[in-house]
Design a protein around this nucleic acid. Structure first.
Lengths: 139, 139
DNA sequence: TGCGGGGTTCCAGTGAGGGTAAGGTCAAGG
DNA sequence: CCTTGACCTTACCCTCACTGGAACCCCGCA
C-alpha cells in the first residue's frame, strides 16, 4: 500500500507518516521506484499511533507504548504506569485551565465591553486590585 | 534598572525579557556599556505581560492587549472581545482534555496493572472494541 | 506527447522561549 | 594593580510535533 492510501485509512497525513518514519516509529519497505510500501503491520502501528496521539500521549510515550504493544511478554503495569502519569498531567492541565478560566470570567464579567475606555480586565492585568469605582481613594 | 532586577521584580527570566525586546514588546534604553536600562514604564509593561501570559494569552494577544492598555481612547469592548475569544479557546481545551481523561480513565480502570501481558489499554489503542474477557468470541 | 495526480527529498518555519559558549563590565578584596 | 565572581552582551542551536513549499520523479491515460 502507498502512503496516500495509508493516510486515508489512518486519518494521518502523508507528511505525518513520513515524519513518523523519520523518527523511527514505522519502517515501511521501499518499492523499486523508491515509493514507500506499507504492510498490514505498518498500518496497525500507524492506527495505534493515531489513537494514542489523539488521546494526548507524547511521541515519546507513543514510542514506549508501541514497544509494549509489540512485546508479548510485557507487564500491563508498565502500560498502566504510562497511562496514569499521562492522566495526572491531563488533570494538572485541566486545573490550570480552570483557574485561568475563573480569573478571566471574573474580570470579563466586570467589564462593560462598550465604547468607553474604562476596563477592569486591563486593570486586573496591570496589577491593580479591586476596581476604580468603589475602591477607597489612595490619596 | 538592569535586566536582573527587572527579572526578579516581574518573575520573568532575563532570557524572556530579552526575547520580548527582540519581538518588540518592550524597548528599554541602553547604557554606555550596552546594558539594557529599564524605566518604570518598561517594568509596568513587563508586569502586564507576565500576568497576561500567566492567564494563557498568546504573545499576539498580549501585544494587542498592551496596545489597548496604552491607548487612553480604547473601547473596553475591544479588550473584552479578545478575552472572550480566549475564554472560548480555554473552554474548548478543557472539553478536549476531559474527553481524553474520560477515555483513559475508563481504559485504565479495566487494566489489571500487574505482571501479566493482557492489557485493555493497549487493546483500546489498537482499535479493538470491548474487552477480551466477556466479549463474544469472534470465531 | 502532454497532463493530472501520485510520489520523493530537503529546507525552513511555527510558539515561546531554553541552553550554552565566548566574551565584556563592574565592584570589592588582597 | 590584579583577581575574583557576579552580572551583562550577542549568537547560535535545541525543543515538540509537525506543516508548508520548492524542485523534482513516476505512472496511467487521451
Amino acid at each position: 500500500m502507498n502512503i496516500g492510501d495509508v493516510a486515508k485509512r489512518t486519518n494521518l497525513r502523508a507528511k505525518t507518516i513520513r515524519y513518523y518514519e523519520d523518527i523511527g516509529l514505522v519502517k515501511p519497505l521501499r518499492d523499486t521506484n523508491d515509493y514507500r510500501v506499507f504492510r498490514e503491520s505498518d498500518l496497525h502501528k500507524l492506527t495505534f499511533l493515531a489513537r494514542a496521539r489523539a488521546l494526548g500521549f507524547t511521541i515519546d510515550d507513543c514510542r514506549a507504548l508501541l514497544t509494549l504493544y509489540e512485546d508479548e511478554t510485557r507487564a500491563s503495569s508498565d502500560v498502566k504506569e504510562i497511562t496514569n502519569k499521562h492522566l495526572e498531567e491531563i488533570e494538572a492541565k485541566i486545573v490550570d485551565l480552570q483557574a485561568m478560566h475563573a480569573t478571566l470570567t471574573h474580570l470579563a464579567k466586570e467589564c462593560a465591553g462598550d465604547h468607553r475606555p474604562n476596563c477592569p480586565i486591563l486593570e486586573g492585568l496591570s496589577g491593580e486590585e479591586g476596581n476604580s469605582s468603589n475602591a477607597p481613594d489612595t490619596k
